[in-house]
Nucleic acid binder design. Structure first.
Lengths: 207, 207
DNA sequence: CAAAATATGGTACACTATGTATCATAAAGT
DNA sequence: ACTTTATGATACATAGTGTACCATATTTTG
């Protein structure tokens, strides 16, 4: 046999272990889980576990890969910077998270949350930046595009994460709309104040 | 003796334990640290450790309290929504983080990072919201003020956190200025595009 | 289908770290 | 000076980790 990953048994046990970890995270939180718990849930043995993963953290990493891929798949079709579309494109993300609320609340509170957060953030930055340069070809930007993309990404994401902590505060639709409005209209629009913003005209800026 | 916290010995050992944990986090990261490591560094005994803290996590919590308080103290004098001031008020935060780069990089990558992040986020939301309503008394806002404050807070914070990961990309001054510009001018200003944004006039929105 | 290859499960073991109990001593507080 | 109490040393029970070995079951391959 060339590749051991092709073995039915391997795929089966690894999948069982991943599923076991996820459901245990939902049940009792990552920290409280032992390898014994995982293999009990997966109906396999501790020895087998260690044949596949160095430790609990390594299994978590692969789980997060799977979840991350799922998330990326679901957000692929939505153009985040299409600021004319109604409903706002980010609504797709809110809806997807709403459907998998428990999972993402658990994942984003787990050990590996930082890693996932950064991966999602960096993916968002990448996507947004690509969309911007595609939408404005040949345009000369006054600010570095990656920083603008960063700003959009972290703002959208920050509001999403806050919403996961406070899911009953507002509906997904409302959150998406407000998020979109503030990003593209700016805070002052959101506050409904019109000022003589002459400092904006001589804005940016060298470093 | 009324309060055991007043005992010199108690204050001394607790401080030594906190300092030990912090320097160990900087040296080898939170996860790899054992209680034995901590008491070795603090030059005390394991038994003493357990008389003060339930476990490593509890000590971390108190450390984070201290760090958090320090951070709050340093950002207290800066009004985040003063959008005319130059340099932008958030520069104070960037400067403070720059001085304590190693510490905050370590802290915000540690176990308790999520907790700290949320506390900082919520504190920022609180501060920004208070500033907004003070700056615009009697004003009728088209969007919920707490969401506007949330947006500002997570955007500023997201850019700060990204900068901690990429400290050499831009200077503190530049980051602060861009962050400020995008928040208050909005992304479209940052991109230097003027559109017939008529959809903004009929913007918000009921839920 | 048979044979070779290999993943699994059971048991046992060494090791590390945790958390607690006890008691003599040192260092605070009064 | 006297009392209170925090500390440190030792010892111990417990839990969890990671590995070794071997018989068995299952899958792949020819």
């Amino acid at each position: 046999m060339k590749n051991p990953d092709e073995d039915l048994r391997v795929r089966r046990t690894e999948k069982a272990l991943r599923n076991a970890l996820i459901s245990l995270i939902l049940k009792k939180g990552y920290d409280a889980i032992t390898v014994q718990d995982i293999v009990d849930e997966a109906e396999t043995s501790r020895v087998t576990f260690y044949r596949h993963y160095k430790d609990k953290a390594e299994l978590l990493t692969t789980c997060l890969d799977v979840v991350y891929q799922d998330l990326v798949t679901h957000m692929a079709p939505c153009s985040l910077i299409d600021f004319h579309s109604d409903p706002p494109p980010v609504l797709i993300l809110y809806k997807y998270l709403e459907e998998n609320m428990a999972l993402y609340q658990a994942i984003l509170s787990s050990q590996g949350s930082l890693m996932v957060q950064k991966r999602i953030r960096d993916y968002l930055i990448y996507v947004v930046q690509r969309e911007i340069v595609e939408a404005f070809p040949l345009h000369k930007f006054p600010l570095p595009v990656n920083l603008v993309a960063l700003h959009i990404a972290v703002a959208e994401m920050g509001m999403l994460l806050w919403w996961l902590d406070n899911p009953t505060a507002y509906s997904a639709e409302y959150m998406a709309r407000v998020s979109h409005t503030l990003n593209f209209g700016g805070v002052l629009e959101g506050l409904g104040v019109k000022l003589p913003l002459n400092h904006h005209s001589e804005m940016p800026i060298l470093r």
